[in-house]
């Protein structure tokens, strides 16, 4: 058993390194085969992968089935969109108590997107985490729907039509996000750092409490833990990751709209996590890739491509909790 898990570990490390090497090489490969649009497609994969990883932190490790995760992505996107709109419009975001002007500085806007994602997650999580199971799913969904309709109600910012961005976020003169390869690598770097942070997190004392609460919350209490605070903290960190992903998504699409927060988007994120492998952190990135590539490949063939996705997903859920990642990287080593 021990040998097997060690072997599983090595296999996982190898899989991660190979995957990373492929992602680093992707722009060159795409260039070589003359399919430049793959860079754009994979940029989306990295961005949604980031959102999926952040969801995995609470879903896979914490057992919190949030059906409203797209809301945090949307909030991050709207932070970029609204501040950018004010730059274009020339009007300040607000004048009281302090004057806040619009900005397109990525070093300001992106952290702000993460922060807003975290703050909304704090408010939503504080209430939702008092429930579990189906109630938790429904309550997170309800909050997300509220924000969805709130976004539609933002008449100034395009309402239902959203905001088209005239500019991408600026990261200084040497990093030009209009260059699709540069943007790709920025997204890759952010994803790598986020996954690495999450990996440390899940193995830390804090992470052990969150994981323990998923497996047996009653036992955690009997040991003397109060897991609510830990779960809420994980929820907030997850919201921050999703918010950041939203900021990137706004830049990738040069557009922000209420559809980012729709329940279908939340569902898709869950699908990516489950498909890729819950509680694996790397799996959700693979899941995002599988999802978007399937969408890309099948959407040409049929409009109802999700009909194909259904059985695939069912197969994964029934046969492998660790999803595609379990299949690539071998059995779990949960004790670590």
């Amino acid at each position: 058993m021990l040998e097997r898990t060690n072997e599983g570990n090595k296999r996982e490390t190898a899989a991660v390194l190979i995957g990373l090497a492929l992602l680093v090489a992707l722009p060159f490969l795409a260039d070589a085969i003359g399919k430049g649009f793959y860079v754009t497609l994979f940029t989306r994969i990295l961005i949604l992968g980031l959102a999926a990883v952040s969801l995995d932190l609470i879903l896979g490790y914490g057992g919190m089935v949030s059906f409203g995760h797209a809301a945090f992505v949307g909030i991050g996107a709207y932070v970029v969109g609204i501040l950018s709109w004010h730059v274009f419009d020339g009007s300040p975001l607000m004048t009281w108590p302090v004057v806040i002007e619009g900005t397109e500085n990525g070093f300001v806007v992106w952290p702000l997107a993460a922060l807003m994602g975290a703050l909304f997650a704090l408010a939503i999580g504080a209430i939702s985490l008092r429930t579990t199971g189906i109630s938790f799913i429904m309550i997170t969904l309800a909050f997300a729907q509220m924000l969805f309709y709130l976004a539609i109600g933002l008449r100034t910012y395009g309402g239902e039509d959203g905001i088209a961005l005239y500019n991408k976020s600026g990261l200084g003169s040497s990093i030009d996000l209009f260059d699709k390869t540069t943007f790709y690598y920025v997204c890759l770097a952010i994803l790598v750092v986020f996954v690495w942070l999450c990996r440390r997190l899940t193995r830390s004392r804090f992470g052990m409490v969150v994981r323990g609460a998923r497996i047996n919350e009653r036992r955690m209490r009997a040991l003397g833990f109060s897991p609510y605070r830990h779960k809420l903290t994980a929820f907030v960190i997850s919201g921050a990751g999703a918010g950041l992903s939203g900021a990137l998504l706004a830049n990738a699409a040069e557009f922000v709209g209420p559809a980012y927060m729709s329940w279908q988007r939340s569902g898709e994120l869950i699908v990516m996590v489950v498909l890729g492998g819950m509680g694996t952190l790397f799996g959700p990135v693979v899941g995002a890739a599988a999802f978007l590539l399937l969408e890309e490949g099948l959407a040409d063939l049929t409009e109802h491509w999700q009909i194909v996705l259904g059985p695939v997903l069912l197969f994964v859920v029934v046969f492998a909790r660790r999803g595609i990642w379990g299949w690539i990287a071998g059995p779990a080593r949960e004790d670590r």
Binding site: R203, H230, R336
Partner: peptide
């Protein structure tokens, strides 16, 4: 170790590998 941690407190440490 989780039980030890429950007693020791300090469960808001995010970085170090608990194992």
């Amino acid at each position: 170790a989780l039980a030890v941690q429950a007693h020791a407190g300090h469960s808001f440490r995010f970085w170090r590998d608990a194992a």
